[in-house]
Amino acid sequence: MILVREIQKSFGRVDAVRGMSFTIEPGEVVALLGPNGAGKSTTIRMITSYLSPDEGSVRIDGYDTQTDSLEVRQRIGYLPESAPLYPEMRVIDFLDYRARLFHLPRGARAKAIGQVMDRCRIAAVARRRIGHLSKGYRQRVGLASALLHNPPVLILDEPSNGLDPSQIRETRSLVHELAENRTMIICSHILPEVERLATRLIVIAGGRKLADGTLGDLLAQHTAPQLVVEVQGDLQAFQASLGDVCGVRAIMQKPTKDPGWTILTIDTLPSAPDPRPEIACRAASASIALRELREVKPSLERVFMDLIESPETIATSTPHHAEATH
């Protein structure tokens, strides 16, 4: 179990993380989502004990990252952003070096290296220098090194960063396999990636946690369906008549390629009754031709954008907070 309690971290005058708290149960696959500079990597670095929090605490399986740092590190497999490795080393030598650092006994070392090379499909490049590998392979070597000691907690910081689409696909399927029997934290701003992998999402911006829950929870709590209405006629009167329909929050208008036809995108209010029947009635009574009236299911992208662009988030993320990276 990972317990993060009110952690704070500043770099000079920049507040990178401000009072973050959450708990991750064993077996959960949690995605930390946020725009660049949101504080994701800093949060992860405090969990891995690479950085010390200015305030607050992080405990993994009951061990504090400050006082029992070595115990914590033995339990974590960590792939930092861009998988920084030693380019002059051969893959097999690098894995052997990492296995020794994690105190794997002599007999278990060769077996563990063989297993992770098979699992990460890097056996073919075992004798090659890391600096000569493609970025996708380097990422896999980094992942293999994080798995050597079979850690119960795996932390991946932007595992698909800088990869081409086919490499992203391969990495994603590998991460999916790895997520089956361990606690995992994935830090990313690639929404489709985390949507497929994570059982729970934590949205961060400006160093603060904005939302925490399953995808279903976030969709239900933070957004409502949009309606797309394609109409022709006296739009001014029609739009005015929709103003008092229960459940309608905002209306945006955009022209179509067909002359005379217009698309209205209607934001609805969460937990309000479905406004579509009433909209159809109002269109009929205003003599508006209605060609389409459909509901667009809310997406993670919309939830994410709504959260990070909400007035409250912008108000609490002063410019120097938004730039906070380390």
């Binding site: 670095r45 891995t48 004990s49 690479y50 070595l70 115990e71 590190r73 033995q74 974590i76 960590y78 930092p80 952003e81 861009s82 920084p84 490795l85 030693y86 990492r98 650092l101 994690f102 105190h103 980094g142 090194s145």
Partner: peptide
């Protein structure tokens, strides 16, 4: 500079 200290400083070595 290269960031390779991150895996090193998160390994169980004092």
């Amino acid at each position: 500079r290269t960031g390779s200290d991150e895996p090193l400083l998160t390994a169980p070595v004092s």
